[in-house]
Simulated scan of single mutants.
Amino acid sequence: MTTIPFYPIGTPGQPWGETELATWRGRQVRQRSYRDDVVRRIDTLRARFEVIEYGHIDYAGEAFPLLALKTHAWDETLPIALVTGGVHGYETSGVHGALAFVEAHGEDYAGRINLVVAPCVSPWAYERIHRWNYDAIDPNRSFGADGKAEESRALRRLVAPLHGRVLMHIDLHETTDTDESEFRPALAARDGKPFVPGEIPDGFYLVDDSANPQPAFQQAIIEAVAKVTHIAPADERGQIIGSPVVAPGVIEYPLEHLGLCAGISGARYTTTTEVYPDSPRATPAQCNAAQVAAVRAAIGYALAPNRQDDRQGRG
């Protein structure tokens, strides 16, 4: 096992306090622009989709509107598909894949399904290419009723009126090498716990909901993405990131219990994608295309004729 030096903030065995949090914030450098990369692309879609500002983040004078795209001709008789990306701001293809899907395919479903797309849930972290928000909180563990991340609370407020009416919810993520070099060591240091190294899967995989498994739905997505990029194999223990592989490229988590984004909608069909952008076998364009393929396959499966009578969420 490789020995990883302790994270350079904090004291081993002691959780962070305000001093350590301030030190961590001081290390975060703005590396890209949410307004240039995301808001401007959303603005170009205003003639085709309704744009909703569902929340507003202000961190030390930096303001970020939280934006979602919604079907213009909303039809209350149709099912709803929810697409979320950028819950972890560093996961680039989640953001750009969601936007690329809307730009190229969002209107393909007119009259068949209502779309709600929140492409960048955590804009401050998007700019810093980080997993956490300004308060060193992971938004994707904050979607429970007691969640502390305002990014997560805002999305919950947006989705709450739709709960139980959403047919399909796909949440677009990445697993990167920095999970092991930065984010998991930082998490251990923040919580005053020892860091135990893990492994990064080489390839695309999905996280199904162990409380509502939909194996055929996951398989349809895997088959579509396999045409774009490679699927992560199980490790020597038959696992991916410590969880048993239940089908090629698929593991399961209790999504709602863990406060994960894909558990907020009560949808019949839910999944979390995980792309591996650091693979020598994948390019950024492939990663974005894999996310688009996943969204299209997810909606296509949910709308297939043999599921005509199963168009409502779980309630």
Rank of each mutant, 00 (worst) to 15 (best):
V116K: 06
L67K: 01
A22P: 02
A216L: 14
D138A: 04
V250G: 08
A68I: 13
F204V: 05
G55F: 00
S279C: 11
Q14T: 15
P305F: 09
A294E: 07
K148S: 13
E50M: 11
G192C: 07
A63P: 08
A136Q: 10
G106Q: 07
I42N: 05
S210R: 11
T11K: 12
H105E: 14
E53P: 01
P15V: 11
L255E: 07
T77Q: 13
E91H: 08
L82P: 04
D235M: 11
L45W: 03
A81C: 11
V245D: 04
P215I: 06
P215H: 04
I264D: 00
R153Y: 07
P213H: 06
H163E: 11
D310R: 10
E50D: 12
C287Q: 09
H163S: 02
V275M: 10
H96S: 09
R40V: 10
V117L: 06
P119M: 00
Y34D: 11
Q219W: 06
G13W: 00
G238A: 02
T176D: 05
A234H: 08
A73L: 13
L167F: 05
A267K: 01
P5T: 00
D191K: 09
A125T: 03
F217A: 01
P215K: 09
R131G: 06
N133T: 09
R41Y: 07
G55A: 02
G147A: 04
V207S: 06
L155M: 08
P280V: 03
F6A: 15
G242H: 01
P233V: 00
E50W: 05
T283C: 05
N140W: 00
Y109R: 01
I137T: 15
P161H: 00
Y301V: 13
D43L: 09
G26R: 06
L45R: 06
I170T: 13
W124N: 08
E199K: 13
T272M: 11
G89H: 14
F6H: 15
R268A: 05
Y126N: 10
Q218I: 11
Y109D: 03
D235P: 11
I241N: 11
H163G: 01
